[in-house]
Amino acid sequence: MQNKPKILIAVLSFNEAVNIEATLDDLNKNNFGYDIVVIDDGSNDETAVIAKKNGVPVVSHCINSGNYSNAAMTYFLYAYRNGYDILCQFDGDGQHQAIQLKKIIDPVAHGEVDVVIGSRFLEKKGFQSFFLRRIGISMFSKIDSNITGTKLTDVTSGFRSYSRKVITFFGHTYKQELYDNTSQFLLITHYIGGKMKEVPIEMRARQGGTSLFDVWKSVTFPLKGLIIVLGCMLQEKKLKGKSTLL
């Protein structure tokens, strides 16, 4: 990799008008040379307007897609088209702290791995999420760990970074639909030969607004997740054949 990689921080947001300004302030204060883009998933509030007022480019979905994986496909496409070497996902709800970005980015910048996931469960500091959700996270982390052979503890964490290879694959090569950017994303990355690791991070509780994770999603998440994992496993050969990373 070149000496100074081009880094993009993609801030995911949907109706985050109460949080977005503080999130962008945090990112601007701790900026060590990265670009920021807000991926707005068709918010009904002033999220995009506030982000633009703060001088940050906004990529707005014309309608709300209702899932983060669509926003992920958008930031991969944006990062690929604009030639970024490293991409970092950062939530717009104030849960992530910009001061910890170096931890997430450094392993990718040094070429150690292709995906870094910030895990709140490695050191068990800060906000640990709700009990029922922790059970789901733990279950899928174990499944994904077994398949990938990498110890994973927080597969749903939205605090991640990706290498140029992953950006190219998901922004250009991969033409199918990404149903979730947790297990499916990690398993596809594994099957195409991408390496991944977790680093300990500290998360805060959501600073305001409401989470997308409602009761119905909490109930359907495990079942949907298992089907997605099964679908990925069935596609293993096909994905390995299409690999650009191997």
């Binding site: 990529v59 958008t74 639909e177």
Partner: peptide, 21 residues
Amino acid sequence: MADRISKLISFTAVTESEVAA
């Protein structure tokens, strides 16, 4: 159709931002 719509949402969003720039 839903998959195609998702792709179009991403594509139009990024293209729109490029046009604006």
